[in-house]
Nucleic acid binder design. Structure first.
Lengths: 207, 207
DNA sequence: AAATATACTAAACAGTGTTTATTAAAAACA
DNA sequence: TGTTTTTAATAAACACTGTTTAGTATATTT
């Protein structure tokens, strides 16, 4: 009896259809204009149908959040080609900035919005995507220690949290338009200068 | 003819009344539950009345954002008692973290939400509150250079942006529940450890 | 062929920010 | 003073939002 299997397949297809429409609206018009009704319009189903496949909007946004992390992790994999482990860390930083600037809406969903975190809390699940990407950083920092770029007595987790905090802060100050404070049009330059300075700080103080 | 003066005074009182109600709701129930209708209920006026005193919700949130900056700057003034300029910088960092954790809603409004920035853009104004608080940091960093804590060839603006980025990142990772990733209940400890590490980084690499 | 289960939706509920037309009161003018 | 004009406030509506409920076709099982 393959009916239940077909049903399950159709259900998964429908979930995909909804998720793709959500992604389309999210990337095109941003978060504000990604409404359940809007998604329903795109897929030509009634709004209520969406609730047969996702518990609520938070869960739908969580699904989108998972896709976003997959995309980021894939772009991260490009840094693997860099031989030197410290240079690989620098490369990861550049990729992180690049991803955030090219996908501001997704970055918001991944690291700022409460919706996906609330959805996880509802399901009593942990933030696995966050953990995996943090692990990516952790591995590189660990290798920086092993290869002698960073001294031995540094706590890897503390170093990672410090690096991530800096990167996340720089990016959100930029994305949330708080660099408009600098009244020139050197925002991008200023970010690059700060990033270079931070790299120097790592190099000098972790030696 | 003191009628226009009285009218202006009454108008200002009404703006205050609205702003206070907004602040009350914002601090008690957070952003989501701070609605125009909710504010109207508190002050016992109709929702439409609020629009006679504030152009829209963004402008009201901008007014609240101004109050928030006043509060933060007042708390910042406490660090003036610290003699050593580098220690004053450390103190400022601690005050910044303290303010953010004690006033997460206000911090959101000041540094993450788009509403006040959009309201400013509408009025063709610059982010003066942001500039003033950044100046506070700039002055202390400048003195760190003058007193020999930081070397001479560092660009003050770049240093300030780097410090602010780190602080802002650490705080938002915490406030937006992205530290739930660490499955222990040492979140606060981890923040402190990272903060200490960053202070050491400044001390060592800017010498 | 009849009974049951599934997939879907129209309509409603309870919210949101905002605008418009209307009314009551205050100020200005004659 | 009485009349006109300006001002302040609001009820009601508009166009949205996420979500739930009750009802209807369709598909599956008995």
């Amino acid at each position: 009896m393959g009916i239940t299997e077909r049903k399950e397949r159709e259900r998964e297809e429908m979930r995909h259809l909804i998720l793709n429409a959500a992604q389309k609206l999210f990337l095109e018009n941003g978060y504000e204009k990604t409404s359940i009704r809007g998604i329903a319009d795109v897929i030509e189903y009634s709004p209520a149908t969406i609730y047969l496949y996702y518990k609520d909007k938070n869960e739908l946004l969580l699904a989108l959040h998972v896709v976003a992390f997959q995309k980021m992790m894939q772009e991260f994999s490009e840094v693997a080609v860099v031989e030197n482990s410290f240079e690989r860390l620098v490369s990861l930083g550049k990729q992180y900035i690049k991803f955030a600037i090219e996908n501001p809406g997704l970055y918001d969903l991944m690291f700022i919005m409460q919706a996906p975190i609330e959805a996880l809390a509802c399901k009593d699940e942990v933030w696995e995507d966050g953990m995996k990407s943090f692990d990516f950083l952790r591995i590189i920092v660990t290798e920086c220690k092993n290869k002698g770029h960073f001294r031995e007595n540094l706590d890897v987790d503390t170093v990672c949290l410090t690096i991530w905090s800096y990167m996340h802060g720089l990016i959100t100050i930029y994305l949330k338009n708080r660099m408009d404070m600098f009244e020139d049009d050197r925002q991008m330059d200023r970010m690059q200068e700060s990033f270079q300075l931070f790299i120097e700080m790592l190099k000098v103080s972790f030696k």
